[in-house]
Computed example of a mutant assay.
Amino acid sequence: MSGRQKPDWLKMRPPSGRQFTDIKETLRDRDLHTVCEEANCPNMGECWSGRNGPGTATFMLMGDRCSRGCNFCDVETGGMEALDPEEPSNVADAVAEIGLDYVVLTSVDRDDLPDQGAGHFARTIREIKERDPGILVEVLIPDFQGEPELVGKIIDAGPDVIAHNIETVERLQWPVRDRRADYEQSLSVLEQVSEESEVYTKTSIMLGLGEYDHEIYQTLSDLREADVDVVTLGQYLQPSRSHLDVFEYVHPDAFETWRRVAEEELGFLYCASGPMVRSSYKAGELFVDAVLREGKSVADARQRARTAGD
C-alpha cells in the first residue's frame, strides 16, 4: 500500500518562514534535538512557522539515538551516548530565547541508564519552571518499563500535562512497537499519572496500520478507563522502505467520526483527530492550553467527562 500515491488530503506544506529559521538556529546553537526533525514529522514546517506566536517545537531530550527499535519510528537505534549534563539548562535557555509559553518535551528511550533518564527529564522540567512558572510544560514520556517510582519522578517535577503514547491497538503492539513496550504497561503508566497527580493526561494512536474499527473503539475505551483526558489520532506514514508499510490511508471523514466517538460518546475532554495530526501537533493551540490558562480544575473537568460518557 505504501508504494501508492498519497491521497490529496495528505499534502503538506514545506518548512519556511522567519520563525522556522529562528527556531532552527537557536536549537543548533545549543546542540539540541527535536523529535520534529529526528522523526521526520510532516508538520514541522507548519508548527515551527506558527500562526499567532513563536510556533511549537518538541524538544527531544537525552540525545538523538534510542535504545529501542520500534518499526514505525525514524529515530536511530543503538550507539547510546552519555547524557549532556548541560542539556536541561540549554533547553530552558532556548525556551526563553524563542519566547515559548507552552513547551513540549519528549525523549528517546534510555533503557541503558540506571533510572532510564527519568531524573534528567525531571531536571529539565524544573529548569524551565524555575525561570518562568507561567510557562506550561507538556511532557511526552517513555514507559520507563512500567516502574512506578520512575514515573513518580516525572509527576513530582511538576509538569502541566503528562503524555505517554499507546501508539496502536493491542493486537498490533508487535510488530509496531519494540518488544519491550506493552499495551498494559502503557495503560498502567497513564493510570498512575491520573491517580497520583492533578495534571492532564494525554496519549496518541496511529491509524492505517491494519487495525479494525472495533479495536480502535476498545483502545479508546481502555484509555478512558485509565482516566486519560486527551487523545490524538493521526495517519501512520512510512518514514522509509525499511519501516512498516502503510496498510491503509484513512479518509478524513473516518477521523472525524472517531473524534465524535471520543468526545461525545466516551467522554474524552478533547480529541484531535485527522490524517496529519501528531501527538504534539500544535500543542500550544490545543484544548489543554485554553483550559489551563482559565485555571479550571482537572478533577472537575474529569468529573464532567465521566458524566458525559455515562
Rank of each mutant, 00 (worst) to 15 (best):
126 R>W: 01
89 S>V: 08
205 I>A: 06
245 D>A: 13
121 F>K: 00
7 P>F: 12
251 H>A: 15
289 D>R: 15
239 P>W: 04
253 D>H: 10
100 L>Q: 10
219 T>D: 03
38 E>P: 00
169 V>P: 02
290 A>M: 09
83 L>M: 09
127 E>F: 06
256 E>L: 14
69 G>Y: 13
217 Y>A: 11
128 I>D: 00
31 D>T: 10
166 I>P: 06
255 F>H: 04
33 H>W: 12
225 E>T: 11
87 E>C: 05
143 D>Q: 05
142 P>Y: 03
145 Q>A: 15
52 N>H: 15
124 T>C: 15
122 A>E: 02
152 G>W: 07
166 I>T: 13
310 D>S: 14
188 S>M: 12
214 H>Q: 12
121 F>R: 02
27 L>V: 12
94 A>W: 02
26 T>R: 13
306 R>W: 10
171 R>I: 07
142 P>H: 06
102 Y>D: 04
271 C>P: 03
198 E>S: 15
147 E>D: 13
136 L>H: 08
29 D>E: 15
4 R>E: 14
32 L>Q: 00
41 C>W: 11
83 L>W: 01
135 I>N: 01
227 D>W: 05
258 W>F: 14
277 V>Q: 00
102 Y>S: 05
8 D>C: 08
167 E>K: 05
300 D>Q: 13
238 Q>E: 11
89 S>M: 09
283 A>F: 00
144 F>C: 07
68 R>C: 03
281 Y>M: 04
22 D>I: 13
235 Q>L: 09
13 R>P: 00
12 M>A: 14
290 A>K: 14
97 E>G: 00
177 R>S: 10
242 S>D: 15
282 K>D: 11
203 T>G: 07
168 T>W: 09
276 M>P: 00
293 R>C: 09
66 C>N: 04
246 V>L: 12
48 W>M: 13
174 W>V: 15
227 D>G: 01
23 I>L: 12
108 V>R: 02
20 F>L: 09
57 A>R: 05
190 L>Y: 10
229 D>Q: 07
142 P>S: 10
260 R>C: 10
203 T>K: 02
249 Y>R: 12
248 E>Y: 12
31 D>Y: 12
138 E>Q: 11
176 V>Q: 01
249 Y>L: 09
307 T>D: 13
222 D>M: 05
275 P>E: 03
172 L>T: 07
114 P>E: 08
257 T>G: 09
41 C>S: 14
10 L>R: 09
15 P>H: 02
3 G>I: 08
57 A>F: 01
207 L>W: 00
107 S>T: 08
82 A>E: 14
37 E>H: 12
69 G>V: 00
83 L>P: 02
150 L>F: 11
114 P>A: 08
98 I>Q: 03
143 D>A: 06
86 E>S: 13
70 C>A: 05
71 N>T: 08
214 H>T: 11
72 F>K: 02
201 T>F: 06
197 S>V: 05
99 G>H: 06
244 L>R: 06
287 F>S: 10
150 L>N: 01
186 S>P: 04
206 M>W: 03
285 E>Q: 15
228 V>R: 01
262 A>C: 12
206 M>Y: 01
146 G>Q: 06
166 I>D: 07
257 T>A: 12
69 G>T: 05
138 E>W: 01
206 M>A: 00
110 R>N: 05
248 E>G: 03
185 Q>G: 15
92 A>C: 09
211 E>Y: 04
218 Q>V: 03
265 E>N: 11
223 L>A: 12
253 D>Y: 07
122 A>D: 02
133 P>N: 09
49 S>N: 15
